[in-house]
């Protein structure tokens, strides 16, 4: 494998559309739950250990070659908010387009045919990692990192937060991202033998509720 391929896939400039999504930060800022670096960190920590862990586990399992249809159904069951399911599929479709152009692969083509409207983004991420010659741990790290880097960069725009402060939040969360990626790879391996019920199902109530509140707004800066 090429370690540099991980940097390409994880780069915020990889053209997969993630910059248009705030990961729930816009709703939390509007509701006054994120007001600065400290509450951003608390938000990101909560997202990392819930939606981030689930996404990283899905990505790890997909990177290990687990059936994507079963993983996609498991992602649906772990995403009760329809606004978040729609966002995840939209992001999955955009990532699919970018990944197929970057790392042409039969497997990516097959998933694209199976899910013309897009599969859940972490599932596509795992398959893309395979196509790039990366492993489950790389896919898990990408998903865990994205689960917090999205809200952090969105909050810089939403609150005019100092970008240095936002980046420091990410750095402080690094040890927890390591643990989440480890757990996700373990879960991904368990899925290979035991099926998708082995995936974690950690949830964050205000992320789900906030996503619906956000989807009901007439005007918003971010898509989700």
């Amino acid at each position: 494998m090429s370690r540099a391929a991980l940097l390409v896939l994880a780069d915020g400039r990889f053209p997969a559309g993630g910059h248009a999504h705030s990961g729930g930060a816009e709703a939390a800022v509007k509701a006054g739950r994120i007001t600065g670096a400290e509450s951003l960190e608390d938000f990101c920590r909560g997202r990392l250990h819930t939606a981030g862990l689930v996404a990283a586990s899905l990505a790890a399992a997909a990177a290990l070659g687990v059936d994507v249809v079963a993983l996609d159904e498991a992602a649906d069951a772990r995403t009760p908010s329809p606004a978040l399911r729609t966002a995840a599929r939209k992001l999955g479709r955009q990532l699919m387009r970018a990944a197929r152009a970057t790392w042409p692969s039969e497997e990516l083509d097959a998933v694209a045919r199976e899910f013309p409207k897009g599969a859940h983004q972490p599932v596509v991420l795992g398959v893309a990692a395979r196509a790039a010659g990366l492993g489950a741990v790389d896919a898990a790290y990408c998903a865990a990192y994205e689960s917090v880097s999205g809200p952090a960069s969105a909050t810089v725009r939403l609150l005019s937060l100092d970008p240095f402060d936002a980046t420091a939040v990410l750095a402080r969360l690094a040890p927890e991202m390591d643990r989440v990626a480890d757990r996700a790879v373990e879960a991904g391996r368990a899925v290979v033998g035991g099926g998708v019920d082995e995936l974690p199902a950690a949830s964050a109530p205000l992320l789900e509720i906030g996503a619906e509140v956000h989807a009901a707004w007439a005007v918003r800066l971010f898509a989700s």
Partner: peptide, 11 residues
């Protein structure tokens, strides 16, 4: 796990 009571969890 951290953040359960924070702005993403129970607020």
């Amino acid at each position: 796990p951290g953040g359960w009571d924070g702005p993403a969890g129970l607020g």
